[in-house]
Computed example of a mutant assay.
Amino acid sequence: MQSQWRVIDCVDLDGMISYERGHMKVKRRGDDEPVSIPLAQTAVVLIGLHVCCSSAVLYEMARAGVSVMLCDWRGVPDAALHSWANVPSEVAARQIAQSGMTLPRKKNAWMKIVKAKIRGQAACLDALGIEGGGILRGIASSVKSGDISNYEGYAAREYWRRIFAGDGKRFRRVPGTGTGRNAQLDYAYMILRGFTIKAILSAGLIPTLGVNHHGRGNYFCLADDLLEVYRPAIDYCVAQLGVSDCLSDRDVKKYLADSVNQQFNSSGLTIPSSVSDFAQQFGLYCEKRIDSLVVPEYQGPYEKR
């Protein structure tokens, strides 16, 4: 079994992958020599649309217990190849642990996610110079295991009625409306969700097994759980736009895409990197390698502190 969780990201590779004596050889088009990577130290390989590899390479990866993710143009996995052979696999071990996670452990994870999200919303209001941060922090302190009292919803009502109050009319968060602030948020959240899906699949987690989100029509319940803590960082950036800024403007789309690549907090990680780290932490939490889930928290725009 692999001694560490190693993800080989070949999403942007324009070249080929080959196999030689227990190693995958990754060669970019135009390079003279390939990079050699031991399969025994690899858990997941992400393959993009411009990668050439033979079925023999995929077979050797399967024999080594490596999971292969086939990704679209955005880098989001669309399909996966897992070994059916009786070989040690980090992915299989982690998924068994995730499926057996106890309800109290799930509830504790959700409590920490909700607390971090609400405190992030408070930091967003503070950064925008809007009153209400103290109220939200008080709500966050009241969240209990599983958030059975739905303090998340209570905080959301307080938050959304404040953040865009300067637009001149009462804002109501309605996903999928396709206009105004809702459209801006939907677009940025969509990009954030893509990064989160990639992170949880790279971490070998089962995407349908969320800690709070559930539903037969949602294949990525866990992604919708983990991304909650990153929403306030996106909201802050959306608040910098005008209510009339439209997605038909390429500059607006670029701005929203860049907002998902911002540095998240003092850790120095960007949002995509933080999401990847968080997904790995959740995997360790599922496996009981760590007793307490450490949830990242937004503390306002880092560059202005």
Rank of each mutant, 00 (worst) to 15 (best):
T42Y: 04
E303W: 04
G180K: 04
D9T: 02
A85M: 12
I96D: 10
M111P: 00
Q184H: 08
A97N: 08
D258S: 13
F171K: 06
G194A: 12
D249A: 10
E297Q: 15
V35Y: 07
V260E: 05
G48C: 10
S273W: 02
I191G: 03
A140Q: 00
G194T: 04
N261Y: 09
R161S: 04
C221G: 05
D31R: 07
V35T: 14
S244W: 05
D291A: 15
G178L: 13
H214P: 01
S276M: 10
S89Q: 07
G132Y: 00
G100V: 04
K117C: 08
Y187A: 06
M101L: 15
G65I: 04
V143I: 09
D186K: 11
T179R: 13
C124H: 00
S99R: 14
N86F: 05
G242D: 10
L136Y: 00
M190D: 12
C53D: 03
P232G: 03
D126E: 15
S54A: 09
V35N: 14
T42N: 05
Y59T: 12
Q262S: 10
R173T: 09
N218E: 13
G30M: 11
M24E: 07
L103F: 09
S273T: 06
E287L: 11
I17F: 07
K169L: 14
L49M: 11
